[in-house]
Amino acid sequence: MMQFPLTIAGVTTRVLQAGHTGPAVLFVHGLSTRADRWRAVLEHTATLGFRAIAFDLPGHGLADKPADFDYSASGLARFTLGVLDALEIPHAHLVGTSLGGHIAALAALAAPQRCQSLYLVAPLGLAPMTPETGEAIRRGVRNVSIEGVRAKLANVFIDSSFATEDLIVEESRINGSVGALEALSALGDYIVERLNSELVSDALVGLARTLPVGLLWGAHDRMVPLSIGHATANALGLGELPVMADVGHAPYVEQPELFVERWSAFAGAAKAHA
């Protein structure tokens, strides 16, 4: 595992990478988290012969947090494609979770020739968000206190042991750092005011005719209802929705080896499909 800075259009981010050769896999994290949530997944994916990469979205983690950045899913999708450009990766498997799933889907729709497959883990952007849910998310991302972070992580993980005190304090400090709260607030505003104008479900139906698209949900996801996953799997003609037992909204954290096993099986099928 290595990490290094990378600058795209004047915005510097942190990249984590495991493996130097093989097909590239780009992992996109969700709202108010960061690249290191994928650390165990990167390590396991690299052992399978892939070049596994994650990065901090602008406004998150150790990335820059410019006030004038376009903090929308489409703006972050453009940055994601910029990461591929800066790393000189012509095409990659894209894996995104939660808001990162929405971002990855928009990146794949914008540049399908850059995407070998698209794997979405309980993503946003598939179904209209109610005003109540949007306001709850906006309040949550603006509360970077220790207790606010503790409450948020209680909804992310089923196994409370993953919400360690170190993680809670670290997340509070990072999300309360200079520029972070303003960036997260801008994303909260986007989710309330504009996310429903960038839904991807209909476009994914067309994309899935030419590009392998996969879904995965945690059986106990408290953030994005399983009903959305079932409806999307049906619309995409994927059959039964793949679900991981005994995990919540972050199956890649709670059971990283099984997560990689599920993804690699999908990627293998995607390669055969190609």
Rank of each mutant, 00 (worst) to 15 (best):
D166L: 10
M1E: 04
K152D: 07
V205M: 09
D36G: 11
V28R: 04
D85A: 11
R142K: 08
S72V: 12
K152L: 14
G59K: 01
M2A: 13
L195T: 06
I146K: 15
R138G: 00
G140C: 09
A105H: 07
R262K: 13
H93P: 00
T210S: 15
L48P: 08
M129K: 10
A250F: 06
V224Y: 08
I146P: 10
T21F: 08
V11Q: 04
K65G: 08
H230M: 12
D85C: 06
S98P: 02
V156R: 06
L120N: 04
D221S: 05
E43V: 14
L16M: 08
R114E: 03
A151C: 09
H91P: 03
P66V: 02
A180V: 13
A272F: 08
V28I: 15
V192I: 11
N234F: 03
Q113K: 13
H60Q: 10
A203K: 15
E182A: 13
E182C: 01
P131G: 08
L120M: 11
I53Q: 01
D159C: 02
V144K: 01
R14P: 05
T80D: 01
L204D: 12
L238S: 10
H29K: 14
T210N: 15
H91R: 14
V156F: 11
A9R: 00
S201W: 09
L94C: 11
A250Y: 03
S74H: 12
L226H: 04
A136T: 07
F79C: 09
R222G: 01
D202K: 11
G188L: 09
L16P: 01
G214Q: 05
A270H: 07
A67Q: 13
M2D: 00
R14F: 14
A274T: 12
A54K: 01
P256Q: 02
A154Y: 12
A46N: 06
A104Q: 09
A18G: 03
V15Y: 05
V156T: 14
T33M: 13
R114Q: 11
P58D: 13
G61T: 13
S185T: 15
A250M: 04
D70R: 12
E165Y: 03
L94N: 09
G22K: 14
F79W: 04
G188Y: 01
D221M: 01
I137M: 13
P251E: 02
D36A: 15
D70F: 01
I8Y: 02
